[in-house]
Amino acid sequence: MSPAREEPAGEAKEIEDLEISLLLEAIFRRYGYDFRDYARAHLRRRLRHRLELAGLADLGAMQHRVLSDRDFFELLLRDLSINVTEMFRDPAAYRRIREDVVPLLKTYPFVKIWHAGCATGEEVYSMAILLHEEGLLERSRIYATDFNRVALQKAREGVYSLERVRQYSSNYQKSGGRASLVDYYRTDNESMLLKNWLRQQVVFADHNLVTDGVFSEMQLVVCRNVVIYFNRDLQERIFNTFYQSLCPGGFLWLGAKESLKLLQIGEKFRELYGEEKIFKKNLQ
């Protein structure tokens, strides 16, 4: 049992909320990273966690520290970005993309895909493998973006722990893979190294969904388990960015428990495959 710390109630909670807002404002003005519209329950937990680890007295002290210490800011940045992912995550949804969306993508002369919030890149390589097997990789480009530069560097390298390879292989098979996952990597000690040619059509870029905008017209936007950390206003804004970015009839693929149902922007999309969270932008 952890020692009983007084839980903030009433006024104390109001003050903490204000301190969080001030801290986020300070981070935004000093470093340009905007967490002001992140979902509060999550944010509160992550900030308290760092407060405890750093042994700081309160959020006021943390604000001072973050303004004067860039390394501390980088730590906080990592706390606030969750990078949980895996290859061929939600295999049934990958199968749906392979069997029912790729044939539609094939009708375009050139296909642009935006993996927004790609974290450490496992799903980017999954997409490259899938496109390769369906004969579409050569005329595709995948833009893989994230605001977390440490994660993005890992994505660029495409080196993952061998510990998870069994799960990845099983996901790959369930997703309708036509070969064997081992065809796409070589091993080195404890690591699996994705083959270089898989990166050929991938552009990795530092892009912040909250503060940066549209950069090209896409046929498919993949954004999975990213917006759950945002409040509804920010979700509206981000999905609006995706809407602007997609060609008419373009596809939006979300995480397994995400939806457009509660958002106004939902009117501008049609639910194509509800179970797999694949939406289609209206032709207007």
Binding site: R40, A41, R45, I82, K257
Partner: peptide
């Protein structure tokens, strides 16, 4: 649970 009574998910 968020303060406004809405549900939130996380992969923390």
């Amino acid at each position: 649970m968020e303060d406004d009574g809405s549900l939130a998910l996380s992969l923390e």
